[in-house]
């Protein structure tokens, strides 16, 4: 029977009643509002401190503006999530993730705990604090419509195999940003490794239940597209839900000289100095 048979919508009042009757339902993927009501609040986090709680659908995207100092944790409950991520300085979004500097400045290609996500302006936008996955990627970016059409036969944004870039373009538009504002991204939970001849060895996922936690070093626009990694060798478009929680307490501050990670290397120390200098001058 067609869905229309379940609805009585012949008048405005009936249509309103029909629409309202749909509220209060639960989906496997949805935002939780207020965030404190999240059924998946991490054990070590006070639910009352949550500012963002969401399970992102496979093949979809999310985006949020986060205050400086906010902690945000991405979790992969099934081992199949792939969180393609972009961060921007929310105050001046021309400052955004620069993947080349993020790999070059720390002299390290692979993301992990302690790795800064650097902008092209010599500052740290976010720092990876903890990482139980170890399988991330800063080489391959996200998928394009051309790639998904080749791999899966379709890439329609409304179809079963949307491309990461197309989702980023929509997420960016919701913050006044255009297609030119979608630079190369990083991805969490699905990794590659570079072999001696330069070829990519598929490293994949490290299984269900891993997470990465980051701290916002400046006010951030965060864009996340949850789609398969472009080098995922499986012929099917396979991706799992992604859990996101963010929180803020008096103890959650940006990185300061009192933190051990501030002095992890001379390069990162100067990056934090630049970040604090910017924040101080702006009165943050």
């Amino acid at each position: 029977m067609a869905p229309v048979a379940d609805h009585s919508t012949d008048t405005v009042l009936n249509a309103r009643a029909d629409a309202r009757a749909q509220g209060g339902q639960v989906s496997d993927w949805m935002p939780y509002l207020p965030a404190s009501t999240s059924p998946f609040c991490p054990d070590d986090v006070d639910p009352e401190s949550l500012t963002w709680a969401e399970t992102v659908a496979p093949g979809s995207y999310t985006h949020k503006v986060l205050a400086r100092g906010t902690r945000f944790r991405l979790e992969d409950p099934t081992g199949e999530a792939c969180a393609h991520t972009l961060v921007y300085n929310a105050l001046e979004p021309t400052e955004r993730l620069n993947v080349a500097d993020t790999q070059k400045i720390p002299w390290q290609a692979y993301l992990g705990a302690g790795h800064p996500l650097l902008s092209g302006d010599g500052r740290v936008l976010a720092t990876i604090l903890t990482d139980t996955s170890g399988r991330h990627d800063a080489f391959c970016g996200t998928s394009t419509a051309a790639w998904n059409a080749l791999r899966y036969g379709t890439a329609l944004p409304e179809g079963p195999a949307p491309a990461g870039r197309d989702l980023f373009v929509k997420a960016a538009a919701k913050h006044g940003l255009g297609p030119a504002d979608v630079p190369p991204s990083v991805s969490f939970f699905q990794g590659v490794r570079v072999a001696e001849d330069g070829s990519f060895d598929w490293f994949g996922s490290s299984g269900a239940g891993t997470s990465v936690e980051l701290v916002a070093e400046l006010p951030l626009i965060v864009l996340i597209a949850n789609v398969p990694h472009p080098r995922d060798p499986r012929p099917e478009y396979i991706v799992g839900p992604l859990r996101v929680h963010a929180w803020r307490t008096p103890e959650t501050t940006p990185t300061t000289p009192a933190d051990e990670r501030f002095d992890a290397s001379p390069e990162v120390r100067r990056a934090y100095l630049n970040t604090l200098d910017y924040a101080e001058a702006r009165g943050l």
Binding site: F139, C140, T144, W147, P184, V194, G198, F200
Partner: peptide, 12 residues
């Protein structure tokens, strides 16, 4: 796009 160039050819 550096990442698209590398991902398509499967080499860094």
């Amino acid at each position: 796009s550096a990442p698209d160039t590398l991902a398509w050819q499967d080499n860094a």
